[in-house]
Design a protein around this nucleic acid. Structure first.
Ligand SMILES: [Mn+2]
Ligand SMILES: [Mn+2]
Ligand SMILES: [Mn+2]
Ligand SMILES: [Mn+2]
Lengths: 143, 143
DNA sequence: TTTTAAATATAGCCGTGGCTATATCGCATG
DNA sequence: CATGCGATATAGCCACGGCTATATTTAAAA
């Protein structure tokens, strides 16, 4: 080998910034997806149900909903259910589809279902559009 | 279909708790791996170099090092370089190996190198031992 | 219609992980 | 050996995402 095969140090900060960026929206994505699920199942998403499914205390869910509202992803009136805005619903659909693809892909390469589900919940937020397409292509040609 | 094919709501909190758990150690893993790199390259890891490569301000790196010390992963004396403890070095090696496997796996399934490097930096922290073994098996039988 | 229980909001705490500004220290240079 | 500069530490700010305890509101029951 005539050249160093490790990434140049100068490129590293971008990698970490990229990961930090993805992480910053991860929680929003999970909340939005789950609120979409609850709306589909029950017609509305109550804070108590959100907290229960996320495995957090109720004030934690209330605070997260406040952030979703600030970001224009959800709407709600005091003491009532939470609803997604158009852009929130659109995000929820994208996130849900990505989640399913990541799980299916992991299973396809030999990861047990339960483990795939656990790992995908964190991994999914770092899967770029390009990588997602690679996963889809793999699934397509594997059948 | 006679049954619901989506995961039961009762299982969801564990998924999210699992992802939160992985995320809580993600930064420690990246710092430890990078300090190991710097020690190998330069003999010691200076806070300035750590900050530069992580793409953060110097006090941010200093604070992270303080946490590493509290967790028993690193040692340092004021105004001197940072060094890994045995358990820190051991963690660094594991994390580095996992990082390489994840990148190689992504490339093997068709993700461009640069994208694989970016996505892996975040994904790696959510790849369990079981999933990692599946990735290794895939790489082995693909050659 | 009153009372009570459940749901939600609010207050206030903590640790993490960013930042800027500034104080302090160590070392090379003059 | 003094001094100045670069590296490190410290102080203090912020947002996020957890938590418990408590106030408030809604809605059901009496
Ligand atoms: Mn998730
Ligand atoms: Mn998900
Ligand atoms: Mn990483
Ligand atoms: Mn890494």
């Amino acid at each position: 080998m005539t050249q160093d095969d490790s990434p140049p140090a100068a490129a590293q900060p971008d990698r970490f910034a990229h990961a930090r960026e993805a992480q910053a929206v991860a929680l929003l994505e999970d909340y939005v997806e789950m609120i979409g699920d609850l709306m589909a199942e029950l017609g509305e998403a109550r804070v108590a149900d959100i907290a229960l499914r996320m495995g957090v205390a109720q004030p934690t869910a209330t605070k997260a909903v406040a952030r979703l509202k600030r970001e224009g992803l959800a709407v709600s009136r005091p003491y009532r259910g939470v609803f997604l805005t158009d852009s929130g619903a659109e995000l929820a659909d994208r996130v849900r589809a990505r989640h399913r693809t990541v799980v299916a892909f992991l299973v396809a390469v030999g990861v047990p279902e339960e483990v795939a589900e656990l790992d995908a919940e964190g991994m999914e937020h770092h899967v770029s559009a390009t990588t997602l397409r690679a996963f889809e292509a793999f699934l397509a040609e594997k059948g």
